[in-house]
Amino acid sequence: MRIRLRQLFGLSRLYRGQPGTGNRRIGSIAVGAKLLGLMVLSFFAFGTRTSAGLLWLTGINLALLFVFRYGFIFLRREIKVFLWQTVIIVSLYILRFGWIEGFKPGAMISWQLSLTYVPGLIFVKTTPQPRIVETFSAVVPYRAAFVMATCLKFIPLILTEIRNIYEGQVFRGAKILRKDLLNPINWPDLVFCLALPVIIRSMNLAGEITLAAKARNFGLKKKRTCWPGI
């Protein structure tokens, strides 16, 4: 006797938000086009040598931030990195060519370097992570896509487990509090008391996830179809 859920529970009722087919594909194409466009913008920055060209590119990047309804402030952490990079490069140019000869080209190069990075940042900051993962899934083999999506999905669980191990080890005397780690003598505690148990846990976790996936026939067939919803 084969039990069918349809038989068991009668006709299914339609659910709220029942997905339409094809949403995912359209979404992936849109994200792919956005990525491509921003990559082109990034490559333009490599080839631009004049301050007018760099100004144009800066304007386009700012306009894109406006289009995606983000303020420039959302790049504040990256701005710090760019400033630090500018200080190093400009300093090197000044040391090599002196103040007058060195400052302008150094600043230009830093500006140019920053503009090669900004489009990538705009992409990742303005695109929801599930959308990005979905887009990757559309172009990479399904097993690789599954592994990547699963590992990212399990980050919160891994963080909770790391936290539990960390806090437990602190009270067992491990010198792994933030201040302790400023002294490299305590780094072995970080590796053996925290990293080692976390590695063992991740191996077990990989085994458990594999079992859970195989219990639902993952890898049984060479291809797989795709849930039409989001």
Binding site: R143, V147, M148, C151, I158, A206, G207, T210
Partner: peptide
């Protein structure tokens, strides 16, 4: 390469990113 091995490699990648994030902050 087995699924378990692939997942473990994926977790190693996650650890690289998590530690980068933690170290960058601190």
């Amino acid at each position: 390469i087995s699924l378990k091995e692939s997942l473990f490699l994926g977790f190693c990648a996650v650890f690289i990113l998590l530690s980068r994030a933690a170290l960058r902050l601190h």
